[in-house]
Each structure stands twice: as structure tokens, then as C-alpha cells.
């Protein structure tokens, strides 16, 4: 809609390296991974490392203005994604994507509306209309983009509280920035994933491996510490959320739990570091207990079988839908059973 009037220059490309314009520029530069091994490579890999470390320590990515008009910033972004692809750590992927999106958000807030719309339409294929109400022009986005990107589901972020015209909902500039931020996060995650899927075809280079090694050194101890906190309290059942305490009690009493209930319980216990055997032991009192079936299913949830994907426990909303939610006071503050546990532990600390 604004396409013809919006100027998207090299500064914009450095600020928004995930856009289609940026990819086009990257093609024009013709940078290859071999170039990374040259002299230029050092600056770029340092910047790639800095980006990830920023994400880990600052939860956003700070940009030295000296980079803002160089293609190096753009190249560094793609080298960063490559390093993350090699690292194969979904947790770190998320940390990075959130930081990258946060960075974009900060920049977007400074932009004119036209540029926001330009990015949303061109890079994310959003459907946007301009609506005039009382002679003021408002941007309105198709509701599917809205619901796929809201940061939380209450107040004005709920569709039911918005004005919708034929599927389009009016948004203000801040809202638009926040919605694009979520879209950027998903885009970064999917870009990393796509790169990872192509790793068999593309040869990674020594430099990429070196970046990955340096990140591992910093990241692993931090990640480990987070995991230990949760595991150490795994034995303290009275800190579990009430839904899980109830399921545990029922399971121990030999009650025949529904499939959803078993999944909820097993995935929760595995998430806080219980072993597959511990979990199976809990189900062993079930009336239809069959060890080989139970083992298969628990190992599946633990990510040891099938898709090798470790399943996270249901969040509160899903627990509610399956009729498994029995909230207490603290539950009002949480959206996920694991969050409940974290709050309890924090209080003790």
C-alpha cells in the first residue's frame, strides 16, 4: 500500500536484517562462507558472537552505531543464525529470537507508520487496510495476523474487546510494533530452523565452528544452573501446583486416569528432572498398568523415542480445557504449572 513511497535504505537493512529487502541485499553482496575465513571474517564473527552474548546477558541486542551503515552488520546476522543452527539448542534459539525481536521493536517504535506497514506487508505478507474514521486514518490489520502475534490474551489484546470491520481490526502504532515484534521472533526461529535443515547440504566452516565453541563455553554453565534449580526441588511435592498434586494423589490411589491426565503428569515430572523409571513407578498402581506400554509412552514424552522431541507439560489453559485444573491462590499468577513451581522455589530462596 505504501510500497512506492517508502524508502528502505542500508540503515534499515542493518536494523531489520530479517526482511526480504535484507535478503535481497545479501544476494547482491554475494558473500559466501569462504569469505568468512578471510581478514574481513574476524570482524564479522566477533559481531556474531557479540549478538548471541548480548541476547544471553542483556535479553536484547545492542548495536554500536558504527555498524549501522555497513553490510557487515547484515552479514553478521546471518552468520549468527548459522552458528545457532550448528549449536542445535532450541532453548538458546528462543533466547536469541526474543532478543532479536526486542531489538527490532525498539527500532520500529522510532519509525513512521508507513515503514511499519511496509515491513509487515512485504516481509510478513500481512493484509493491511487504511480506514478513515472521523477523518482520521487508522491502519487496520486482518485479524489472523493479530491473533497470531498478540503478546498476551487479555484486555485490548483480546479480539472480543476490539473493533472489527469485516475481519480487520484497527491498531495503533505501538500495538503494530508489538505485533510485528512477535512476528519477528517467529521469523528468526524459523530462519534458524531452515538453516539447520540445510546443514547437511551446506558445509559449515572452521570459523562457524569456532563461534559455536565460544558460545557453548558461556552458555552451557548458565543453562545447567537453571536446570539444577528445578531438579533439586523435584522431591518436594508440596511445592507442586495443585493440579499436579491431585493427579499424583489419584495415580497413587490407583485411579484410572485419562490419557490427557497421564500425559500432564508424566510430562510435568519429566520436566522437573524425574527419571523415566520414577515416572513409570507412579503409574504402576494404575488398574490397567502394563509396564512395556507405560515405558514406551513415558519414554516417548521424555523425547527418547519417536520424534525425539521432549514434550513440555500442558499450560494452565489446556489443563482447564481438559478439566484437570484445580486452582489455588497462587495459580492466579501463573499460566503454566512449571511457573508455579518456579515461584514457590523463588520464595524459598
Amino acid at each position: 500500500m505504501y510500497k512506492s513511497r517508502v524508502e528502505f535504505n542500508e540503515y534499515d537493512i542493518a536494523k531489520y536484517p530479517f526482511t526480504v529487502d535484507a535478503i535481497k541485499r545479501l544476494d547482491e553482496i554475494g558473500f559466501t562462507l569462504e569469505d568468512l575465513e578471510s581478514v574481513l571474517g574476524d570482524t564479522i564473527s566477533e559481531r556474531a558472537i557479540e549478538r548471541i552474548l548480548n541476547a544471553i546477558h542483556k535479553k536484547t541486542i545492542t548495536t554500536d552505531t558504527k555498524y549501522l551503515h555497513t553490510d557487515e552488520e547484515l552479514i553478521a546476522y546471518y552468520v549468527t543464525l548459522m552458528a545457532l543452527a550448528v549449536l542445535r539448542d532450541p532453548y538458546l534459539d528462543r533466547v536469541y529470537a526474543v532478543a532479536e525481536a526486542k531489538r527490532a521493536y525498539e527500532y520500529l517504535l522510532q519509525e513512521p507508520l508507513e515503514k511499519l506497514i511496509y515491513i509487515a506487508e512485504k516481509t510478513f505478507s500481512w493484509q493491511i487496510r487504511l480506514l478513515t474514521i472521523d477523518s482520521t486514518v487508522y491502519p487496520a490489520i486482518y485479524f489472523t495476523h493479530f491473533i497470531s502475534n498478540v503478546p498476551e490474551q487479555r484486555g485490548l489484546w483480546k479480539l472480543v474487546n476490539r473493533i472489527i470491520l469485516n475481519g480487520y481490526t484497527i491498531v495503533n502504532k505501538n500495538e503494530l510494533c508489538r505485533l510485528i515484534e512477535s512476528e519477528v521472533k517467529r521469523k528468526v526461529l524459523s530462519d534458524i530452523e531452515n538453516m539447520r535443515n540445510r546443514l547437511d547440504i551446506i558445509q559449515t566452516t572452521k570459523t562457524i565452528e569456532e563461534i559455536a565453541t565460544r558460545i557453548r563455553k558461556v552458555w552451557y554453565p548458565l543453562k545447567k544452573r537453571a536446570e539444577i534449580t528445578i531438579t533439586t526441588i523435584a522431591g518436594k511435592e508440596h511445592r507442586y501446583p495443585p493440579c499436579i498434586r491431585r493427579l499424583l494423589k489419584l495415580a497413587r490411589e490407583g485411579e484410572n486416569l485419562s490419557h490427557a491426565a497421564r500425559f500432564a503428569l508424566a510430562s510435568f515430572l519429566l520436566s522437573i528432572g524425574k527419571s523415566v523409571d520414577d515416572v513409570i513407578a507412579i503409574f504402576s498402581t494404575a488398574p490397567d498398568f502394563n509396564e512395556s506400554i507405560a515405558r514406551y509412552q513415558v519414554e516417548h514424552i521424555a523425547g527418547l523415542r519417536g520424534s525425539r522431541k521432549k514434550y513440555l507439560p500442558f499450560k494452565c489453559e489446556n489443563m482447564r480445557i481438559y478439566g484437570l485444573c484445580y486452582p489455588d491462590e497462587l495459580c492466579r499468577k501463573v499460566k503454566h504449572p512449571l511457573q508455579y513451581l518456579r515461584i514457590k522455589v523463588k520464595r524459598i530462596e
Binding site: L156, K158, L159
Partner: peptide, 14 residues
């Protein structure tokens, strides 16, 4: 998708 259902059910109206 949950948000669409929520809309149809008028849930979360402030």
C-alpha cells in the same frame, strides 16, 4: 485458534 473460539464464545470481554 483458541482466540477465535474465545471470540465466538464472547470470553474475556472487558
Amino acid at each position: 485458534r483458541r482466540e477465535i473460539v474465545s471470540y465466538l464464545r464472547g470470553e474475556g470481554l472487558d
